[in-house]
């Protein structure tokens, strides 16, 4: 049976100021129903672009190749009308910045209810009732009052709760949460992650959690994909990845987790050296210039993503760390 979300050989290129910027290169991944998948990688590694493509939200200057299917239906290359049959209802997304992601001149109630009016054909009155209910479920205090408030009257944490509630209104099959806590206070971050976990247990939807912080992803996901320079370089069960990362880049990322109990980093601490820039030759392993284990072969021959033993552990490295 085909997985819920199936991405095959996806590439996204941007032309910007006359330069080609490859954002995503030949990424293949699948998310099964009810599964929870974490996507980690440095800033600019293409995490967001993969799922923007999956939502049909790529900017006009993006060139996209490959195939994205959701519930067996094509996402790429179809018109907005057929996209809108799944987008916002069965397939939803929570964005990184709750401060700017809500429409400033519409009340919270309207912005929630319109989803149900649009997708479930409810009347506004019914939709508002359901929306108030949802605010209660995502633990927004005083839902009745919040319904008639405008986004600027809510704190960042509350707005992100509203965004999460909005994504759950139509009982989605898959929620994509793109760094849902990055813009929030440290104390609020943990609450939002808790909420996502609770809602997933209650509703049983699949979840993609994008983050540059392995610590955030750890508790909430079954499987973790590591991205580097537009490619997936390692993929493994969450526990296995933490115990024995095979890719040197993943190992570096793991060292960057301060401590699961300590304060969480706002930005990922930078690894030694720079990620590749657009225009750099796309040969061999993109991580080689920063890799302590790199050999001449790493700079000329690209390592394919291959089975690395263990249950569904895959790595793209000529000289993976020993298991």
């Amino acid at each position: 049976m085909e997985p819920l979300l199936n991405i095959e050989d996806l590439s996204v290129d941007y032309t910007h100021g006359g330069m080609e910027i490859p954002a995503v290169r030949q990424v293949s991944l699948a998310v099964a129903a009810r599964e929870s998948v974490g996507i980690v990688g440095e800033s600019g590694s293409g995490k967001t672009q993969v799922f923007m493509a999956a939502m049909g939200l790529l900017a006009a200057n993006a060139a996209v190749r490959g195939r994205v299917r959701f519930e067996g239906g094509d996402i790429l290359g179809v018109g907005a009308e057929s996209l809108n049959r799944v987008r916002g209802s069965k397939l939803t997304m929570v964005f990184q910045d709750p401060m700017t992601s809500l429409t400033p001149h519409l009340t919270i109630g309207t912005q929630l209810a319109e989803v149900l009016v649009c997708h479930a054909g409810r009347s506004w009155r019914e939709a508002r009732n359901a929306a108030r209910h949802m605010l209660d479920r995502v633990r927004v205090p005083e839902p009745e009052r919040r319904m008639s408030q405008y986004p600027h009257e809510l704190s960042g944490g509350l707005r992100q709760r509203v965004m999460i509630g909005m994504s759950l209104l139509c009982e989605p099959l898959l929620v994509i949460a793109d760094e849902p806590t990055t813009a929030l206070d440290v104390t609020v971050q943990a609450h939002i992650i808790d909420l996502l976990g609770t809602m997933r247990r209650e509703l049983g939807m699949a979840l993609v959690l994008i983050s540059h912080d392995l610590g955030v992803v750890a508790g909430l996901t079954d499987r973790i994909l590591v991205m580097y320079a537009g490619r997936i370089v390692e993929s493994a069960g969450a526990a296995e990845l933490f115990q024995q990362a095979r890719h040197p880049y993943t190992a570096e990322l793991l060292k960057c987790i301060p401590s699961l109990t300590g304060p969480r980093q706002q930005r990922m601490p930078t690894l030694l050296g720079q990620p590749p820039r657009p225009g750099d030759p796309d040969e061999g392993c993109a991580f080689a210039p920063r890799c302590a284990r790199a050999a001449p072969r790493c700079r000329t021959v690209r390592p394919p993503l291959e089975d690395a033993g263990g249950s569904a552990h895959r790595v793209a490295c000529h000289f993976p760390l020993p298991s």
Binding site: L57, R85, T103, C118
Partner: peptide, 8 residues
Amino acid sequence: TAIAKGLP
């Protein structure tokens, strides 16, 4: 966000 909500 509005587009991602699937609004026409």
